[in-house]
């Protein structure tokens, strides 16, 4: 569910102009330039609002934001507290 929400957000808000239908959950979003220093702010705002978590500055590291799957793990970990 979280994975679908994140994928949906990325497709609609960040990749809207590229006509993509799906994102490989293990594809590196940073290396493939899906996420950059500007769009990550949108992504953080989305995660906080739709997933009910607080993203700290120190959370914004590759191991949490590299792929859809790493984002899912990060959200689940945050929710567990």
């Amino acid at each position: 569910m979280i994975a679908k929400d994140i994928e949906g957000f990325l497709l609609a808000e960040i990749l809207a102009d590229f006509g993509k239908q799906a994102i490989d959950p293990d594809a590196d979003l940073i290396e493939q330039r899906v996420i950059d220093s500007l769009t990550i702010l949108k992504l953080v705002a989305f995660l906080e609002e739709s997933c009910g978590i607080t993203v700290l500055d120190e959370d914004i590291v590759p191991e949490n934001f590299s792929t859809v799957n790493s984002l899912v793990r990060f959200v689940e970990q945050k929710r567990r507290g």
Partner: peptide
């Protein structure tokens, strides 16, 4: 630490 990671490196 990793140029491939761009701003996240």
């Amino acid at each position: 630490v990793d140029r491939r990671k761009r701003f996240m490196g």
